[in-house]
Design a binder for these strands. Structure first.
Lengths: 116, 116
DNA sequence: CAGTATCCCTGTAGATACTG
DNA sequence: CAGTATCTACAGGGATACTG
């Protein structure tokens, strides 16, 4: 029986999981929003200002999407005027290893281009 | 001086690298093609048949893109009729850790949804 | 076999205006 | 403040036909 490398098996069998992950993190603004949130911005317009070129429309939609995916939480505090703040969830923090690997690869990728 | 967690710093500073990586691997067919290649399919139509619903047009375009990104190599062997075969590069294999992390997360993500 | 060219449709995101 | 609604522009991708 031929021994197949683990790499090939992973790629083939688990493609579905890979797609799920890509779906969650590959949006144009997704990671920027998570980044902004993790840097302390919590309010809608605060986040909007922290991310260049994003429109309210997109921010609104992305936040909904992120909330649906349980990556952020939305809290309403009505004390006179409307007060809403967003936070990344503990669950979102499980993405850190994934993101770290991607960043690591991104650095090497860029370096590879320079050296070639 | 306030100690900031490493997680936050990574997210903020290295967003550009993250985007690079996302750009390379987030195409609709990218990972499927790499998967097909890593499973032994090498010829154009072979790959096409191995990936459900992909059109020649898309396969052609994606292969070009992947070649530009040095993730696959294209070899022409003219021995009478046209013979071309594609292979994933050693460079592409450096993506394995990234992909593994993503698959791992994808599994947990799905499980999280089921349990909630 | 190994693609490319063309046409067209649909979805995504921008601009702008408006609401509670 | 915290968004949503509408309209539009543009690009990605599918269908189909064709080429070396």
């Amino acid at each position: 029986m031929k021994k197949v490398s683990r790499q090939q098996i992973d790629l083939q069998v688990d493609l579905k999981y890979l797609e799920d992950t890509l779906f969650v993190i590959s949006g144009k603004w997704t990671m920027k929003i998570i980044s902004a949130l993790s840097c302390g911005n919590k309010r809608f317009r605060e986040i909007g200002k922290a991310i260049p070129d994003i429109t309210f429309r997109m921010l609104s939609k992305e936040l909904q999407q992120l909330e649906a995916n349980k990556l952020i939480s939305r809290t309403v505090t009505t004390e006179g005027r409307m007060l809403i703040h967003y936070e990344i969830t503990e669950y979102a923090k499980t993405l850190i290893p994934v993101i770290s690997e991607m960043i690591k690869w991104g650095k090497d990728h860029r370096r590879a281009y320079r050296s070639v």
